[in-house]
Simulated scan of single mutants.
Amino acid sequence: MERREVEYFLAIAEQGSFTGAAKALRVAQPSLSAAIGQLENRLGGKLFHRLPHGVRLTPAGEALLEPARQVVRDLSTARDSVRQVLGLTAGRLDIVAQTTLAVDPLARLIGDFLRHHPQVDVRVVDQELGRTATGSVRTGECELGVVDASTDPEGMDGVLLAGRQIYAVLPPGEHAQKRIGLSELAARDFVATPEGTATRAVIEDVVAARGLRPKVSVETAHLAMVVPLVLAGAGVTLLPESMAVGASREGATVLPLRPKVVRASRLLWRPGPLSPAATRFIELVSKTAVPPRHRR
């Protein structure tokens, strides 16, 4: 297979149509169709079901998807490695993370990384509902992933990141006390993101510590909507310190929990060769990672 054919195949799979892929790649659709036809002839079977509106992968196409992504990534890694040897500063870093973890701690880590390597392009992908960050790393869609520390997938390498303290975020002017107990908090109505998200997992774990299930008054897939809903009196929520500080500036009541709750996260990647950018990022993160003797 030629790299061009593999890239065309991946673009069609991601866009869901030949038309969308041709537009994204800025190539003529007949050229794209001809290249895929040649690839299918060479492999001996159809890779796509041609539908009235778009395409769908055949079983053969599904089987090719992960190897194709890895081929493209390996070629990029080889190119970046040569550039590094030749003294060039370039490359691309792809990281997948749930939104809350992207805000804290990933944003800070990326900022530190870019101060040392400003020429590297960084792409942060949000974890879609129903699709895990681990799955995106396994398939080669992203080189690195940031997940909650409770996730420790088999067959993956990783480092445990420093923990972040969790705070209760309540409507304005609601509490005069300095802290809020978990039992009192567990009895409140929550504003939360959907199940499977990092914010929801924190809420469920904190409330579960009191043998209860959280009562979610408003569920929203838009994390940016959570604080405005709390400010409007729709309920309370739990957020890491960096996001809670922002909520406090907007007028929310922000209280530490009693007892204190700290959540750690994990940076993970597939074993094997990594791009120079990913290798440097891991080296930087490892300097502030949790030492093995302190891991729980």
Rank of each mutant, 00 (worst) to 15 (best):
T199R: 09
M243W: 01
K178C: 02
P228K: 01
A168R: 08
V245W: 01
E204I: 05
E204D: 15
R188N: 06
M243I: 09
A247D: 01
E241H: 10
A264S: 15
P240L: 07
Q177C: 04
A264K: 13
E241R: 14
L239H: 02
A247N: 01
V206N: 05
G196H: 03
M225N: 05
G211I: 14
E219I: 12
I166F: 06
R249S: 06
V261G: 06
L267R: 05
P256R: 14
A201N: 05
L170S: 06
T197D: 07
W269Y: 14
G196S: 05
K215R: 15
T197E: 07
V202C: 07
L170R: 10
T237S: 15
I166A: 01
A208I: 09
R213K: 15
V245P: 00
V261T: 15
R249Q: 02
G211A: 11
A252P: 00
V216D: 10
K215P: 00
G181A: 10
I180V: 15
L182M: 11
V202G: 01
V226A: 05
V216P: 08
W269D: 00
S183R: 09
A198R: 02
A198P: 00
P172W: 09
H175R: 14
I203C: 10
A209P: 03
V207S: 10
G181R: 12
G251P: 08
L212P: 00
V261M: 15
L182P: 06
V218L: 14
L170T: 06
H175T: 06
D189P: 05
A264H: 11
V206G: 03
I180D: 08
L223R: 05
L255C: 05
K178F: 07
L268P: 01
L231V: 11
I203E: 07
L267A: 11
E184H: 03
A201R: 09
L182I: 15
V261D: 12
A168W: 10
E204V: 14
R179N: 13
M243P: 00
I180Y: 13
A192Q: 11
P259A: 14
A232S: 13
R188W: 08
G181C: 08
A252D: 04
E195Q: 13
G211Q: 04
M243K: 02
L239Y: 09
L212H: 11
V227T: 12
E184L: 06
P256K: 13
G211P: 01
T253S: 10
Y167V: 13
G173F: 05
A209S: 15
G181Y: 08
R188I: 11
G173P: 07
G211Y: 07
A224V: 10
P256L: 12
P271C: 06
A208K: 09
V216N: 06
R188G: 04
L223K: 01
G235D: 03
R258W: 14
T199S: 10
R210H: 12
G235V: 11
E241D: 03
Y167K: 10
L170A: 08
T237N: 12
V226I: 13
G196I: 11
T253P: 00
T253H: 00
T220A: 06
L231E: 03
V236Q: 01
T220L: 08
S242L: 11
S217R: 14
L268G: 00
G246M: 03
